[in-house]
Design a protein around this nucleic acid. Structure first.
Lengths: 212, 212
DNA sequence: GTCTATAGGGAGATAGAC
DNA sequence: GTCTATCTCCCTATAGAC
């Protein structure tokens, strides 16, 4: 990775912060939160175990930065998948389920961190800001799917369940008994499941409307 | 449980193993896998930090025993919920979604452990045996919902998605922005979401059947 | 079967040199 | 900004007394 002329000096130009986040994410993908430590991340980045503390006050801060970066990347992946899915609103929303599953399986991203680690105080907020971006993206897609008279709160509930479905599917796949090799197949099944849920949801809304 | 003549010696009669699992689960609920240690579990149980090693060869073995116990308890809760839901197959299956959500929110059970920790070798098998029991329970309920001509593999896919949906919903709730106080409400929404998914799934099967 | 004691290691975080 | 060195704490696991 490093050029031959700069033997092994690593991150002298202020990109250590970014490098630490990158290596932190890689470590999380390999070992999960349990195997995460500042010392290991530093070693991966080719710096001493003290260096990270110039950029992050403590372990939690680095962890939170990694979590935020992961969520941001996932958000981007979902937005792009919706973009490429064409004009049909249901297809666009369902496509995000496939993208999420694909992202998690391909990157073995620190999902346990993002959704199972209890960040405290300010770090919690940092992470939730990125989660908010993800939710907003899905809200926009969901609004296009649901009838106009559905309230914002009900749309949010719907988005929450859509995300849950996909998230649950992807995380179970990661650790479960099913072979995670067939990424395309799993992503496709996630899309189908999302469509099933959307279909059922719309049908219920319609039925409630015609027989109150 | 202990006889009156043995005042308060804790776990002198071979029930330390069970006590350790119980305290281990409680610790997992409070701190997650990250905060789990044999030493803390021992302290909680009122024994020295060396005592657990008479009952479990190492930390992973205790962890696996806790995970298996949690899954077993969840399985029992789902089975009971289905039992009490009445005769309608869809209602019985959907009820398990509510029970799962309720269980996770009430016990703050070590969900991260069960579905995010990578058990090695023999421990992995121990945990998967209990997961299998859970899956079998759901398979039976799903078979009653789906048409008779649906293959076992397709039923398994369906069960997998049902479980994923509920699992994702419950885990997002645990760490997300939504107030986990309203357990009844969340459980009810989980049931509705499960119904939506089942409805959509059955509709798709029907449509595929009539227009192949 | 449980205790005390301890070896051994890893990791968080800080101090001061460069 | 990064290094070396170090302090401190906690945890895993074992040894040997009772």
């Amino acid at each position: 990775m490093s050029s031959p002329t700069t033997p092994r000096r690593g991150y002298h130009h202020g990109d250590l912060r970014a490098g630490l986040i990158r290596e932190g994410i890689a470590l999380l993908a390999e070992t999960g939160v349990a195997g995460f430590s500042v010392a290991k991340v530093a070693a991966r980045a080719g710096v001493s175990s003290a260096a990270p503390y110039r950029h992050f006050p403590d372990r939690e801060a680095l962890l939170a930065a990694c979590a935020a970066a992961i969520i941001a990347a996932i958000t981007d992946a979902l937005a792009e998948a919706a973009e490429q899915a064409g004009p049909d609103p249901v297809g666009r929303l369902a496509a995000t389920a496939g993208a999420y599953t694909r992202y998690v399986l391909e990157h073995r991203a620190g999902v346990d961190l993002v959704y199972a680690h209890d960040f405290a105080g300010p770090h919690r907020q940092t992470v939730q800001e990125q989660s908010r971006r993800l939710t907003d993206t899905l809200m926009a897609l969901a609004s296009a799917v649901l009838p106009d008279d559905v309230s914002s709160a009900d749309t949010a509930d719907f988005v929450y369940v859509c995300l849950s479905t996909t998230h649950g599917y992807a995380t179970l796949l990661l650790r479960g008994t099913r072979p995670p090799q067939d990424i395309d197949g799993h992503a496709a099944r996630a899309v189908v499941a999302a469509r099933d849920h959307i279909t059922g949801h719309l049908l219920r809304l319609h039925d409630q409307d015609t027989s109150p």
